[in-house]
Design a protein around this nucleic acid. Structure first.
Length: 422
RNA sequence: GUAGCCGUAGCUCAGUCGGUUAGAGCGCCAGGUUGUGGCCCUGGAGGUCGGGGGUUCAAUUCCCCUCGGUUACCCCA
């Protein structure tokens, strides 16, 4: 417990240190590899932006209405810590005007000012991709497949892929009207807490978790009946593509997602291994109006974001993606004046062998304990006898207790040789 | 923003129906073994019992407030 005068991480934030940080890095690397395999480039955007960038994602959304972590800078500009990345990427696209299709991936911290709970932090990390400049349904397939492949490759098995379509803007408007009419007609059977949403955001009532509302929405009109010919063809092509790639999915007519910019394809990856309220590992969809909203040309886009913390929670639940081994290969035990430890660690590191040592002239027992605890495979022991004879003692700490005497001048080359044979 | 539960050593937790120096296990440090880790034994360090206020002769314990954690609503990653 922190002292009265001590500081702690701010509410809804946490430190991530060893060994968790190594696992976290490995997860990012796994995603980076997946992105590179599909020729996506890395885009870093600022962690804060003008508040207007994010207001474009929908005035009626919770993200904009109550979760924006905004502040005035010293020039009286209204800034906001980014709550998501799609709007930033579109802002960047408008500013840079890269050639299309622009395929980028990203990773980093995001911020939403809300009450923390399981799988929900005020600062959290997302990784994801965006593609701007193509309305080809095969890009939808590529994006969805990339996410599925990533989750599969890190060892998650209990993942459900849900998809839906919102159609184009006209479809969406007509469908929203139909849903609203239907909900109004069944007002009495809908949980009271959802009544307000019926008027403000009828589509969002569809993913309400309240039992009475769910009974009503199960029978709600389906979007298929409202899809234009083009929108229907697009959705058909996406489904056929996923089928061709052998990716299993379920159509979820009530999947609407909370951001207003989505059109056409919507998708979400859910973990059935998590029994918390937040079981969505990630989600995304197509947004064909957002670039224009931000002052650019009419440009289609699609992408998804996944929550790093949630993925790791799911990995814990499935006992997948174990932390990588970060132990040094060699530990130097020097019971003379420490000079050998100083020089040998440097030599080993220079040849690419990880090595560490104790400091502060600890006892041999203490140094051996430290070597054991570190997980090192080898110990190099240097005492007065060794120094006098120009040798060191090389001890195997893992497979056996074998140890042997070896020339001081040979030991580094010897270890490099032994390690190369693995 | 709202509600429930919870804040006692670095970690996981006992405990105190209010009463002299607040405990355990694990971890850490040292010793048993002045050249050998993992097992075992011994010892040690480390807490203003989350913070503030109130009641009381006396508060870690009771009351209020506050901060934080946690779970849920809402919503999302």
């Amino acid at each position: 417990m922190a002292k009265a005068t001590g500081f702690k991480t701010p509410k809804g934030t946490r430190d991530v240190g060893p060994p968790d940080s190594a696992r976290w890095q490995a997860l990012i690397s796994a995603f980076e590899r997946e992105a590179q395999l599909a020729n996506y480039g890395l885009l870093h955007t600022p962690i804060f932006e003008d508040i207007g960038v994010f207001q474009r994602i929908g005035e009626g959304t919770d993200v904009v209405q109550k979760q924006m972590w905004d502040f005035l800078d010293k020039g009286d500009r209204r800034m906001v810590l980014r709550p998501e990345n799609t709007a930033s990427v579109c802002r960047s696209f408008v500013q840079q005007r890269p050639i299309v299709p622009w395929k980028i991936w990203y990773q980093g911290p995001f911020f939403r000012y809300e009450e923390p709970q399981a799988g929900r932090q005020r600062q959290f990390n997302q990784l994801g991709i965006e593609v701007l400049g193509s309305s080809d349904a095969d890009i939808d397939v590529e994006a969805i497949a990339l996410g599925s492949r990533f989750l599969e490759r890190i060892g998650l098995k209990r993942v459900l892929l849900l998809i839906n379509s919102m159609g184009d803007v006209e479809t969406r408007l007509k469908y929203a009207q139909a849903v609203q009419d239907y909900l109004r007609a069944n007002l009495g059977d809908i949980d009271r807490e959802d009544h307000e949403k019926i008027e403000a955001h009828p589509l969002r009532v569809l993913d309400s978790k309240r039992p009475n509302t769910r009974k009503v929405t199960a029978e709600a009109p389906r979007v298929e009946q409202f899809l234009s010919v083009e929108a229907g063809a697009h959705f058909d092509r996406v489904q056929a593509g996923l089928g061709s790639l052998g990716i299993s999915f379920a159509i979820e007519p009530r999947l609407v997602r909370g951001l207003d910019y989505y059109t056409h394809t919507l998708f979400e990856y859910q973990s059935s291994a998590l029994d918390t309220a937040q079981n969505a590992l990630g989600g995304g969809g197509r947004y064909n109006g957002l670039v224009e909203e931000l002052g650019g040309p009419d440009t289609p886009g699609i992408g998804f974001a996944m929550g790093v913390e949630r993925i790791l929670l799911a990995c814990d639940a499935e006992q997948a993606f174990v932390p990588p081994d970060t132990a040094p290969v060699v530990w130097i035990i020097d019971v003379t004046d420490g000079s050998s430890a100083r020089d040998l660690t440097h030599e080993l590191r220079s040849t690419g062998v990880s090595a560490d040592r104790s400091f502060d002239h600890r006892s041999m027992r203490s140094q051996m304990k430290a070597a054991d605890r570190s997980g090192a495979a080898w110990a190099i022991i240097v005492g007065d006898q060794e120094v006098a004879s120009g040798v060191v003692t090389l001890r195997n700490l893992r497979e056996s207790d074998d140890q042997k005497t070896i020339e001081r001048s040979q030991v580094v080359a010897y270890l490099v040789e032994v390690l190369s044979q693995r």
